[in-house]
Design a protein around this nucleic acid. Structure first.
Lengths: 184, 184
DNA sequence: ATATCTAGGTTGCGAGTTGCAACTGAAAAC
DNA sequence: GTTTTCAGTTGCAACTCGCAACCTAGATAT
């Protein structure tokens, strides 16, 4: 994955510890998953997840505090409180799916996904969560490299790739694919 | 995200709990990240991460036990032990990157990524980790739907999408993009 | 109006984890 | 042959988890 090593400073400063501050706690991802499945109320989470009351209370409060869920009293019954995903919470979907796909790939038990997550357009199962290049190519670990910002675009052969020229390529590619898919 | 809700059984049986069994623990992702950065030895992890000795020992053992790292005594110095990523460990890269990108997007502190993760081909920064359709389109939360396996490919308008026809589309798309990128 | 039920908590307690510091034991360096 | 380095283990204090019981405001029934 390249010869460069991120310095100590970065091991602390990168986005990972920030993400783990909330999502690293024991039940956070399971609550998130339940939210993605439409669960909204305290007692729903409680019975579906089999988590302890106090822990659930604590986790929900923390998720709200970090802006992943929003807490709003129900209009029709003011005892009830709705916990729903914010945009920030929704943005965790790739991370959750990646983790889930990994667990599924290597899990011991044969998992029969009964409801399958599909693409709304053609109702076919989604592919694996992927690392994309700026132009939409799928990258594997062997395609990745660490570079100092000053060397961005400097290829091994000395030629220079222009970041500006690449902007929008992904959209073009995906539009093309969307059209092709819609035609079938 | 569709009208269907995954049943309780699935909340337990899906890949997520399996993944969280190892990666849900407090330092696992940080150790993984250090591994991706080329750290291999006990004392390296210890000083770079600022983790306690006993916890590091425990976590490394668990990661080895779950086949994410492999533990091999060093050839040249038999006190030293190398912990290196297995393929299973490497496969966690999308999950780690997704989490990291999320943390970076919403983190309070302005993160200046000094070494940037780039595409080896053009040395330009990678794009966001994405959920792809089977044909390579990038999907957002609004494009996702839950369907029972029997209804795969059944579109809302009644027409049927063929999974077979879609195979390889992603490759075609990505080849085209790669060519376009290489031409610049 | 009073009693009961329900939703969403909080509190107290025992068990398990985490983190620090000190100790161990084997291999390398001097 | 003494010291240093590497990779642990052990003991102990602080914190977190999970369970069960209790609490409070709002809804429902009589």
């Amino acid at each position: 994955m390249g010869e460069l090593r991120e310095p100590l400073r970065d091991l602390i400063e990168c986005g990972l510890p920030q993400a783990l501050e909330v999502m690293g706690e024991r039940w956070s991802f399971m609550i998130l998953r339940a939210s993605f499945n439409g669960l909204k109320h305290f007692e729903e989470f409680l019975t579906e997840l089999g988590i302890a009351r106090n822990i659930l209370s604590n986790r929900l409060a923390k998720l709200v505090e970090h802006g992943i869920l929003k807490r709003e009293p129900c209009a029709d019954d003011r005892r009830k409180i709705e916990y729903r995903l914010t945009e920030k919470g929704f943005d965790l979907l790739p991370a959750m799916l990646a983790l889930r796909q990994w667990g599924q790939k290597y899990g011991t038990e044969q998992v029969i996904e009964d409801p399958v997550l599909v693409d709304e357009l053609d109702r076919l199962p989604i592919g694996p969560v992927s690392i994309l290049a700026h132009d939409g190519r799928i990258l594997g670990p062997q395609d990745l490299w660490l570079t100092r910002p000053a060397d961005l675009g400097k290829r091994a052969d000395g030629t220079i790739a222009s970041p500006a020229a690449g902007l929008g390529m992904g959209d073009v590619v995906n539009l093309a694919a969307a059209k092709a898919a819609a035609a079938r």
